[in-house]
Design a protein around this nucleic acid. Structure first.
Lengths: 264, 264
DNA sequence: TTAGTTCGTCCGATATTTCAGACATAGTGT
DNA sequence: ACACTATGTCTGAAATATCGGACGAACTAA
């Protein structure tokens, strides 16, 4: 009472130097840092990447190593994801028949067309590739599974946010995400119109948008309520002839529809 | 005396009621319990399965849900592995032991130029990518590390066989390898001339060869005897402007030379 | 209605975990 | 040789996350 302990409520407003975090949160930050980095990392660097003390990081890493959620790589103290992660992830992607059916379709479409096929979705406020089958050529157009990409850069993104109003879109998508990697910017109004169009026509296409050499086409996979959680997507060379594109688009829409659960 | 409070020191031998555990350990137990169960579980049951208090379990589950390491299934409070697990597991299973052999130069060049950089070599009678740094865009031109590709399809291949005579080349390279993926065929004589030219000028370039959308340039990394075992290589979009190509070629040759062991 | 579940949330206390820093060791470059 | 940096381990102390338990709500079965 004497020392105004009642103000304690307000005390820690600013996260200042001596910040103490929960182990669980450290674990989450650590795993996402590893995912972003996409290569083994030394513990010291990991500590910097997640802004944690070295001693804490060692403690956490050792726990995760023991659980095989991480494993050491090489002999110089590098660590990366471990076997348990593979098992957990496998469990996730096979736990329901629907997802398995989607993966089978992915395989089949890749085999039939020889093109790159992707399954896409949202993760937080970004677009991610959830799984993919790359075209068989020695050089391919592809993007890494799990890497977060701004929604406006992608055809799938336009479908995945189709249920949102313009106001919702404005608050959902970071302003910076309208800037393309080559410096160009997409006008938000144009993007909103694209989203509207994608919703009406039931598919979305982009050409040379995030890149100069890709033509992307996406079709929605709807859940039982008609909502779009996933999209099926072709990533083609931008110079693919129009007749072939149309043919592929038809296939894509048909397969995506076949995977949708919406009755009706 | 009745309850022997003084024996408290010894009390905890048996893992009895008042056991307090670290959040991280709870997380690990929780995930392994889910894996064993192989189906979505309600939070209350999860608490029993891992022997944790309900309140703690809710706390932990909510953290993991927020991180998408878990996700709710159905509308009755069931949870199971989430999307992040899939991404972590994918990263694990696509992480190949060779990735550890990354050269600093590769990192630096990729960072400086933003282009796709590869380290290439021969494996048997084929060309392989030994390591690579991909350009940062969401879609990229790339090829899989370790996948064998016919030597005549690549710029690096022209350098890597530079020490062979025409007769040696004829027996070294399978006849089928002159056929490109799109059906065209390279005339062996043209290829031999390319190899000769690459040897004389100390680099090699190909455009739209194995693909319609790539421009490849390769420069030799020589071992202590001056032999070419490895090449450094840019994989560019085929429409990269010539001035930039020249600039990148200069950089490539300089760095490759810097990595060469051949004494002056 | 009453009695019995389970759910999800909230609270205060304390046993525990995070943290900063020290330490010996190993590696690098001048 | 030297200075400099990074690694992996330990330690004590303080901040706090875990815990037990309580609470209202929703549901079931009499």
């Amino acid at each position: 009472m004497s020392d105004g302990a009642s103000d304690l409520i307000e005390a820690g407003a600013q996260p200042q130097g001596g910040e103490r975090r929960r182990g669980i949160d450290r674990v989450i930050m650590l795993l996402e840092a590893l995912l972003r980095h996409r290569a083994p990392v030394r513990v010291g660097d990991l500590a910097k990447m997640i802004g944690a003390p070295r001693s804490t990081t060692y403690e956490i890493v050792n726990s995760l190593l023991e659980a095989e959620m991480l494993e050491t790589v090489g002999s110089e103290g590098y660590v990366y994801f471990g076997r348990s992660m593979h098992l957990f992830g496998w469990a996730y992607s096979h736990h329901n028949a629907h997802y398995r059916r989607i993966l089978e379709t992915l395989d089949k479409m890749a085999a039939e067309t020889g093109e790159t096929v992707q399954l896409c979705g949202l993760r937080g406020h970004k677009y991610v590739v959830l799984d993919c089958r790359d075209s068989p050529g020695p050089f391919r157009i592809s993007s890494d599974v799990g890497v977060e990409v701004p929604i406006p850069w992608t055809a799938s993104g336009r479908l995945l946010v189709g249920h949102m109003s313009e106001a919702e879109l404005k608050s959902f998508i970071p302003a910076d995400d309208y800037k393309l990697p080559d410096g160009r910017a997409i006008a938000p109004q144009d993007f909103f119109r694209d989203v509207e169009q994608a919703r009406l026509q039931g598919f979305s296409e982009t050409s040379a948008l995030a890149d100069r050499f890709t033509w992307c086409m996406a079709a929605p996979i709807r859940d039982g309520h008609g909502a779009i959680n996933r999209t099926l997507c072709f990533v083609l060379p931008v110079d693919t002839p129009e007749p072939r594109r149309n043919q592929l688009l038809d296939l894509l829409r048909e397969r995506a529809k076949g995977l949708s659960l919406a009755g009706g």
